[in-house]
């Protein structure tokens, strides 16, 4: 089943790696946004099946972006997967207050990304 994924990351190289990894493994449509503001606009417009959201971004960071997505009726149902460099087991409590579908640790393995996403969202 073809899916649409929105990758939100301010680093162009990381965007490209994630996009490439997903495209090599799946037939999903992969969209990219470089900032929280872009992400909000694109999420509302394109209604992706999931959002892969980087935590560390300038201006509007992952936390703020997530809050905005969840408070907007048009986007609040879209599952959000956080991508963070802080995802060591001991730090996970930092995110316990956030409405996330899953957390993926940075640096991620691009070729495992599709499997990780499918697994955490229970996509068959």
């Amino acid at each position: 089943m073809s899916r649409c994924i929105l990758i939100v990351d301010d680093e162009a190289d990381v965007q490209e790696i994630a996009k490439l990894g997903l495209e090599m493994k799946t037939d999903w449509t992969v969209l990219v946004a470089s900032s929280g503001a872009d992400a909000l606009r694109m999420a509302a417009e394109c209604q992706p099946d999931a959002i892969l959201l980087d935590m560390m971004m300038p201006e509007m960071d992952g936390r703020a972006t997530l809050r905005a997505l969840k408070s907007d009726l048009s986007t609040q149902a879209i599952p959000v997967i956080l991508v963070t460099a802080k995802a060591q087991p001991a730090n996970l409590s930092d995110f316990s207050d956030l409405e996330t579908a899953a957390i993926i640790a940075k640096p991620f393995r691009p070729l495992r990304l599709a499997a990780d996403i499918s697994e955490s969202l229970a996509w068959s």
Partner: peptide, 12 residues
Amino acid sequence: TPMNAMIGALDL
């Protein structure tokens, strides 16, 4: 951040 791009690229 650059490590992420590097490892990802090498992985691919």
